[in-house]
Nucleic acid binder design. Structure first.
Lengths: 343, 343
DNA sequence: GTTAGCACTCCTAGTTACTGAGTGCTAATA
DNA sequence: TATTAGCACTCAGTAACTAGGAGTGCTAAC
């Protein structure tokens, strides 16, 4: 059974109405509110077909129909009309991003703020993750006797500091010497590529400082497995409380416990290896904890390199068109802001 | 009307039972479960008295009694018997804290983890905040042309880094010179005490670098108002979902939105200027969003200086005795761990 | 001072009946 | 042949009622 014009119109009407009202949609409603020029009975027939095709379903007999994941998918792919953001919204976003900010982190936080505010859903942002993380500089500063501060600068942007134990006998000059060697050997190397060989070289050159060295090298290894550049930012977590589909406390709990786990979020956001926009509807999402949610994400980039994703997570019953425009708009502004900043 | 022995026993029984069951407690229940040697009728009379005294209340006629905030207060102050932690719990806490950790932050996170895990409530920890924050060191490192990394070490422990704009013409040596002067002028000064005068001196000495200086000094001012050393750590936020008093979605929402606001949490934790343990029951808490919660906090210290608070937040119907033991135990372990670390 | 007895209150759960929205089917219609 | 009107049927939701039970306060007897 093919999807003729009228079926499409009926499906579109059902989805639009359901998105707007969150109530199952009946044939009479459609006949009344959407001008299809046919009677409820005809629409009922079409609906029976649509149900058979899997695009809509009935919560129970004698209720109207609600869209299935498949229905939303069809809608998003074929039926949806693009809906632009309101001029004032666009203006607002633009204005917020043109504030001068120094820290990458603040820009990202801004973005998540805006996304959640305008969409009224939860914003998820995967912080900038640079493909190759190369050492730019390592600095060792004495703190108090027995402790030193190790500062590692990665990609001339990401700064990490760690406190390390050192023997009390180590002097300021020793530290300088060590950091010189480290810089010499590691500068420009990718974090992942620091080979045993290089390590050995360092060990040999600094044989004298064996005992402190192990601490430092441990830390470097640790950096490697440190995914804190993959930091996840959330915004508007409590917005779900406003959604009628989350009036059940267990559902809220489920969703919130998914949002609590950073690994899961990273997983969700990284799932779309596509460049640009990605829409995952309900069960299309890997994680079953959000099988009644849709996730609209977009990758953002700096210098033509993809560095992260931003997205909004809401119920499957979501005004997709507007949400997409929003994500697109924020992506553009975010990318622009970051590029200006990192240039 | 005075509180005679029997009244106390009845009150204690009511509170214990209510804490255990979360159901209003009737006279018959008490007569049966707690061995007071009197009939329900007598207990009813006592209960009427206790109600008049404000220690218990009735949700409605023909329901049992539940403790009021005042009742809990009386219980905590006079009736409660100390309940030790289970040996294995104490053992567990001790063991977790004896893992070697380098970062203050990890220790704090551990503590919040443990608190929430064992109590099944929400843990709130106010990160180490040192009374006087004095400059120990300022370091300026070139990043890319036009940008430098400014590292500020406060109290030889807290490290902050910021990226600042500098004119492209500034060289490595210039930065060294600047940081030398800054260190010279600021070392040992409290953040709050950097006076106009000192600033002026710096300006004079570095007149040559006027334009970059303003950026740096801005940053220093910013540091001053930066309360991120006052960071709040939360653990087990979702535990409230397990509490029967939070089966109502609006209550959950309310509580979670309180927990979302760091300022509020700081406020709550700093409210107790007392040293050591503090118990705030229901309405005793400043913030009305948690007027059906109790907050048990304790200050922790390092080198005899109070540096923060830890606490657990649960419903007023809380096993106070055990919660107190828990908070005390974690405080001791935390303090010990920090002292060992900062020594 | 304590207690048994009793009438009274009020929440809760279950039953019943009713309503209304919505369907699917059938037969009539264009 | 596609559309539509009509109708019987289904079922969630709601309201009204009932019975049961837990608990109280009061009174009078012990």
């Amino acid at each position: 059974m093919p999807m003729d014009e009228r079926k499409k119109k009926v499906l579109q009407a059902i989805i639009q109405d359901y998105i707007a009202t969150a109530e199952p949609v009946g044939s009479r409603t459609i006949a009344r509110k959407y001008d299809l020029g046919v009677s409820p009975a005809t629409i009922r027939n079409e609906m029976a077909d649509l149900e058979e095709l899997g695009y809509i379903e009935q919560p129970h007999t004698s209720a109207g129909r609600i869209p299935s994941d498949l229905g939303y998918r069809y809608y998003v792919d074929w039926l949806m009309e693009k809906e632009k953001l309101k001029p004032y919204e666009e203006e607002y976003i633009h204005q917020v991003f043109s504030q001068k900010m120094k820290e990458i982190e603040s820009v990202i936080k801004q973005a998540s703020e805006i996304l959640s505010q305008i969409s009224n859903y939860t914003a998820i942002i995967l912080g900038p993750q640079l493909g190759k993380r190369t050492f730019q500089r390592i600095e060792l500063l004495p703190l108090v006797p027995g402790k030193a501060l190790m500062i590692t600068i990665i990609n001339s942007r990401f700064v990490r500091h760690h406190i390390i134990d050192i023997p009390e006998s180590i002097t300021h000059l020793d530290l300088e010497r060590i950091s010189m060697v480290l810089n010499d050997k590691l500068h420009g190397y990718a974090l992942e590529q620091v080979k045993k060989e290089t390590m050995k070289e360092i060990y040999e050159e600094l044989a004298h400082y064996k005992n402190i060295l192990s601490n430092i090298l441990d830390m470097i290894e640790h950096l490697n497995s440190d995914h804190s550049t993959e930091k996840v930012y959330l915004g508007g977590t409590l917005n779900i409380f406003n959604q009628p589909e989350f009036k059940d406390i267990d559902k809220v709990k489920n969703l919130l416990s998914v949002l609590e786990k950073d690994e899961v979020l990273v997983d969700l956001l990284e799932a779309n290896d596509t460049v640009g926009l990605s829409i995952k509807i309900g069960g299309e999402n890997k994680h079953q904890g959000i099988s009644n949610c849709s996730l609209i994400t977009s990758t953002y980039q700096v210098n033509d390199e993809i560095v992260g994703s931003i997205g909004i997570l809401g119920p499957t019953r979501m005004p997709y068109s507007k949400a997409i425009s929003l994500v697109e708009c924020v992506t553009i502004n975010l990318t622009r802001a970051l590029e200006k900043m990192l240039k």
